[in-house]
């Protein structure tokens, strides 16, 4: 087993946070139906959260123990790099813009920004890759699998209908 893995920054806090969350969940499960019956909706959640509390306690205990005997400095590399933070911010922005801007526009912006950040190729090359990828994804999901992706500002269904009228003729 990998018991030699050195501790990462923030691991203690994560362990304590897990414990706190599990206690809240135990309390919430009790709130569902109390100890009314073995078959009550809250019985299984209560059992699970109790197990989770116990597990978290053991983890915290292990962390404390390890703190006492810790001598190695180990891997102190921060968990999140600057690139990571920027990329996460991009993801967040993408998620928030998905509905107001629509799938096509927001995905285009996200892919461009993401690839410029991580790939650092030329703008034209990136643009080409992004447009190709978007076209494939749009055809597969929207046209073949009929997933109605958020439309946002681009009136896709009208454009599709207009294209249809153009090629299909009135029927």
């Amino acid at each position: 087993m990998h018991t030699t893995r050195s501790k990462r920054p923030g691991e203690d806090i994560f362990g304590l946070a897990t414990l706190a969350v599990s206690i809240v969940l135990l309390w919430q499960s009790y709130e569902i139906s109390g100890f009314s019956a073995l078959s009550s909706p809250g019985s299984f959640p209560m059992a699970c959260s109790a197990v989770m509390v116990l597990g978290s306690l053991l983890v915290v205990r292990d962390n404390v123990r390890r703190n006492r005997q810790a001598t190695t400095t180990g891997d102190r590399m921060p968990i999140i790099t600057l690139t990571g933070v920027i990329f996460m911010a991009l993801i967040l922005a993408y998620a928030l813009l998905l509905e107001p801007l629509g799938f096509l526009l927001s995905s285009f912006l996200f892919l461009m920004a993401g690839m410029m950040l991580l790939y650092r190729g030329g703008v034209v090359k990136t643009l080409g890759i992004v447009l190709l990828a978007l076209a494939i994804i749009y055809v597969v999901f929207r046209l073949i699998f009929q997933v109605i992706l958020p439309e946002g500002v681009i009136p896709e269904r009208q454009i599709m209908a207009a294209l249809g009228n153009l090629f299909g003729g009135a029927r």
Binding site: L143, Q158, M160, A161, L163, G164, N165, A170, R171
Partner: peptide, 20 residues
């Protein structure tokens, strides 16, 4: 599928339904 979408999308404009 594409032709089904395209064909079924063909109808007189401005009358309900204008789109899918």
């Amino acid at each position: 599928v594409v032709s089904a979408v395209v064909v079924s999308a063909g109808a007189a404009v401005a009358e309900f339904p204008e789109r899918d």
